[in-house]
């Protein structure tokens, strides 16, 4: 067989395979959207149908006016932003130290930062609860965002370390010849270069906080701090089993995350792989 024909055929097969995989990836989200615009009577139709004949936005209206989701949305946004700020300050400066300085115990410390990324949240949950309670921060947004540093700090440190390493040391050195000290260099020279990286890291931290369930489940009590995953999980509990509303709420908390990701996907991918590939 002609080599070119062979390669065209295998290309076609790969495209079919990729398209098939994308469909599988998107099925759950598609089913969420499909259910969310159905009338109550059509939700349990047998056999199930993908596209309803009588679409309605009633479920969305229910969620917006009669549920805790809008408040949870606000809470999640605030908690997310606080987590981003804290983890960029603390994790970013640690990442800079790892990337730029030689010091004793560097290996041990990076071990420590890496290991802490892998700790089971169910293990930390109980003591964290008691601690946050003793600080009087149970059921507060700030308490939850402090707890979320557990999941964001190590990764932010690791990602920023990768970014700083990607900037040639010479740039900084030439700056220090010009009389800038380290911090001035950091702010005046490095920050502008790292804008996309900072955005990516920030979004990573934001998404982690937005998605986190186990800690938020115990650290929140009322709608003063309840975040979207908790609010959603309460939709399908004891006394209301309204799949239409549940799916509308699920769609509403997922779409901002997906859009956010699509906006920065290129940098995001680079950031996530940087730590692992470059080491």
């Amino acid at each position: 067989m002609n080599k070119r024909v062979k390669s065209i055929i295998s290309d076609a097969l790969i495209y079919i395979f990729l398209a098939f995989m994308v469909i599988i990836i998107l099925i759950p989200l598609g089913w969420v959207l499909s259910t969310s615009i159905k009338q109550e009577v059509d939700i349990f139709a047998k056999p199930p149908v993908w596209i309803t004949d009588n679409p309605t936005l009633q479920s969305y209206r229910d969620v917006l006016t009669g549920s805790g989701i809008p408040k949870a949305f606000l809470n999640s946004t605030i908690v997310g932003f606080m987590t981003v700020v804290f983890s960029l300050i603390f994790g970013g400066s640690a990442g800079y130290a790892f990337a730029r300085f030689k010091f004793r115990g560097k290996k041990v410390l990076s071990l420590y930062f890496l290991m802490s990324q892998m700790l089971p949240l169910t293990v930390l949950m109980i003591p964290l609860y008691y601690m946050i309670n003793d600080w009087g921060l149970i059921d507060t947004k700030i308490g939850l965002s402090i707890a979320h540093l557990v999941i964001t700090m190590p990764m932010v440190t690791w990602m920023t370390k990768g970014y700083f390493q990607g900037i040639p040391k010479e740039i900084e050195e030439s700056a220090s010849v010009d009389g800038c000290n380290t911090l001035q260099t950091l702010i005046r020279i490095l920050m502008p270069l790292l804008k996309p990286a900072i955005a990516t890291t920030g979004i990573y931290a934001f998404v982690s906080s937005w998605n986190e369930f186990a800690l938020a489940n115990v650290l929140t009590r009322t709608d003063a701090s309840r975040t979207v995953p908790i609010s959603l999980s309460e939709f399908s509990s004891y006394f209301k089993v309204d799949w239409g509303d549940t799916m509308a709420a699920a769609a509403m908390i997922t779409i901002p995350i997906v859009i956010l990701f699509m906006l920065v996907q290129k940098h995001f991918v680079e950031g996530l792989t940087a730590g692992a590939v470059k080491g």
Binding site: I126, Y129, Y130, N133, D134, I138, N217, V218, R221, T222, S233, E234, S237, Y238, F239
Partner: peptide, 21 residues
């Protein structure tokens, strides 16, 4: 008032009631 849910009330109460204050 803190409103609890059937699925999680026991975990949450357990956590809350065992703390000081």
């Amino acid at each position: 008032l803190v409103i609890t849910e059937w699925d999680t009330y026991k975990n949450k109460i357990m956590a809350a009631i065992s703390t000081n204050n």
